[in-house]
Measured scan of single mutants.
Amino acid sequence: TTVKLGDIKVTFDNPEKAKKYAQKLAKIYQLTVHVHGDTIHVK
């Protein structure tokens, strides 16, 4: 599962960890989390 934020891409083996990371980023940057299959976009 890949978390994308602009040019930053972080890949996790564990989808749950990816989701938590995405939510953490979203909170920090006051953005929202969008899940598209294996990719989680923070924008």
Rank of each mutant, 00 (worst) to 15 (best):
Thr1Ala: 06
Thr2Gly: 04
Thr2Cys: 13
Thr2Lys: 06
Thr2Trp: 07
Val3Met: 03
Val3Gly: 03
Val3Thr: 03
Gly6Pro: 02
Gly6Cys: 15
Gly6Lys: 06
Asp7Tyr: 15
Asp7Cys: 15
Asp7Glu: 10
Asp7His: 15
Asp7Ser: 15
Ile8Cys: 15
Ile8Gly: 02
Ile8Asn: 05
Lys9Ser: 14
Lys9Gly: 05
Lys9Asn: 08
Val10Gln: 04
Thr11Pro: 04
Thr11Asn: 08
Thr11Met: 12
Thr11Ser: 09
Phe12Leu: 02
Phe12Ile: 03
Phe12Asn: 00
Phe12Gly: 00
Phe12Thr: 00
Asp13His: 09
Asp13Phe: 10
Asp13Ile: 10
Asp13Met: 12
Asn14Met: 05
Asn14Arg: 05
Glu16Lys: 10
Glu16Tyr: 10
Glu16Asn: 08
Lys17Ala: 13
Lys17Glu: 13
Lys17His: 11
Lys17Cys: 15
Ala18His: 01
Lys19Cys: 15
Lys19Phe: 15
Lys20His: 08
Lys20Thr: 07
Lys20Gln: 11
Lys20Val: 09
Lys20Cys: 14
Tyr21Glu: 00
Tyr21Ser: 00
Tyr21Val: 04
Tyr21His: 02
Ala22Asp: 00
Ala22Ile: 07
Gln23Thr: 08
Gln23Asp: 10
Gln23Met: 13
Gln23Pro: 00
Gln23Tyr: 13
Gln23Phe: 12
Lys24Ile: 13
Leu25Trp: 06
Ala26Glu: 03
Ala26Asn: 02
Ala26His: 02
Ala26Leu: 05
Lys27Val: 08
Lys27Tyr: 12
Ile28Val: 07
Ile28Gly: 01
Ile28Tyr: 12
Ile28Gln: 09
Tyr29Asp: 00
Tyr29Ile: 03
Tyr29Met: 06
Tyr29Pro: 02
Tyr29His: 06
Leu31Ser: 04
Leu31Gly: 08
Thr32Leu: 07
Thr32Ala: 09
Val33Ala: 04
Val33His: 01
Val33Pro: 01
Val33Gln: 01
His34Glu: 14
His34Gly: 03
Val35Leu: 08
Val35Pro: 04
His36Asn: 11
His36Gln: 13
His36Ala: 12
Gly37Phe: 06
Asp38Lys: 09
Asp38Phe: 08
Asp38Arg: 09
Asp38Asn: 14
Thr39Gln: 06
Thr39Gly: 03
Thr39Glu: 09
Ile40Pro: 02
Ile40Ala: 01
His41Ser: 08
His41Asp: 07
His41Leu: 12
Val42Tyr: 04
Val42Leu: 15
Lys43Glu: 10
Lys43Trp: 14
Lys43Met: 14
